[in-house]
Design a protein around this nucleic acid. Structure first.
Lengths: 172, 172
DNA sequence: TAAACCGGTTGCAACTTACAACCGGAAGCC
DNA sequence: GGCTTCCGGTTGTAAGTTGCAACCGGTTTA
């Protein structure tokens, strides 16, 4: 067990004020933290190189490294050894970051509604928004199975559905 | 009419990718934008000095000025003359920023759950989270009346309820 | 007519971001 | 064995952003 999360609170430094919005912004309010979490959550990427080379926005390697270690320190990602390669590190979501799913859904829904998004990249956000809290719960349970219990991604799950919709739109 | 929002999309520069999460992060993912919107939305502050001197986190005046003009340019705030003082500027929410309410609710709920928040500052977030989508809609309608139509704050509304709960906790 | 208030601006130091090149160790392949 | 590729990063450097404090000209108030 790499970190004790899921029970108490996250080990973050106390900020400028104890306001929940302010503290969350202090933790996640930068150019890359949420984008990295998005790629782990929706892209299924768990390794450094995977995140680096599949980054749509072209994150730099030093920024990725600093964000990963910050997110690990904060308890939003956990580091695990990968049995296939001694140097490979498996970054997994924690209960705290899995519970960001409804937040990500709203973020995506608002962005799709108000910002000049590209159609193929909006599809997952729109499906997730339409699915509502019931779908978010299913997705969170799926992420718990994959990231907390180490199970493989189910073929008939929410993630597979979102990915298929994205692939369909991308190749069209 | 200072800006045409509520119908189309926001006039923001195209970003590194058309992903809705990325574009939203590019727009709001910094240390202060959401905190300023929070103060306008929940604090009821609409003037520069008011936002500056009541800022819990102590925002600097140059940062506040740059954020306000960025939010106005992006269509998340609108500028209005104040009849009581020729130099006074009334910053109001737009339809786009009012629709951030569910997002703010999740943000606050997540922060209250996972971060070391102070009790009196968490109360509004917790009430808003408990209230659910029905309360968010009522709050958004209230904000529309106040910020889009210029009506006074209702005494029996969501905002008054949240503010009373906060004052009660603060003085306790 | 002096004091307080209005939305900012300016100058400067410290910190953060972005880009590109590079690193030592581990695995795969012949 | 020995070459190549892959692994998670680090380093150097330039450009941009943030934070702080002092200050500004115009407006309203007492």
């Amino acid at each position: 067990m790499p970190q004790s999360v899921g029970v108490g609170r996250l080990p973050v430094p106390g900020g400028k004020s104890g306001c929940p919005i302010n503290l969350t912004v202090e933790l996640l309010g930068d150019r890359w933290s949420l984008v990295v979490l998005r790629d782990v959550m929706f892209g299924g990427y768990r390794h450094f190189r995977e995140l680096l080379t599949n980054s749509l926005e072209g994150i730099a390697s030093n920024i990725l490294a600093s964000r990963l270690s910050k997110l690990v320190d904060a308890g939003l990602l956990s580091r695990h050894e990968d049995p296939t390669h001694r140097q490979k590190i498996d970054y997994r979501l924690t209960e705290a970051s899995i519970e960001l799913v409804p937040f990500m859904a709203h973020l995506g829904a608002w962005g799709s509604r108000w910002l000049p998004t590209s159609p193929e990249l909006s599809i997952r956000a729109e499906l997730l928004a339409e699915g509502g809290p019931e779908m978010w719960q299913r997705f969170m349970d799926e992420l718990r199975a994959m990231h907390l219990e180490g199970r493989p991604q189910p073929e008939d799950g929410v993630l597979a559905e979102l990915t298929r919709a994205y692939e369909r739109a991308r190749t069209a």
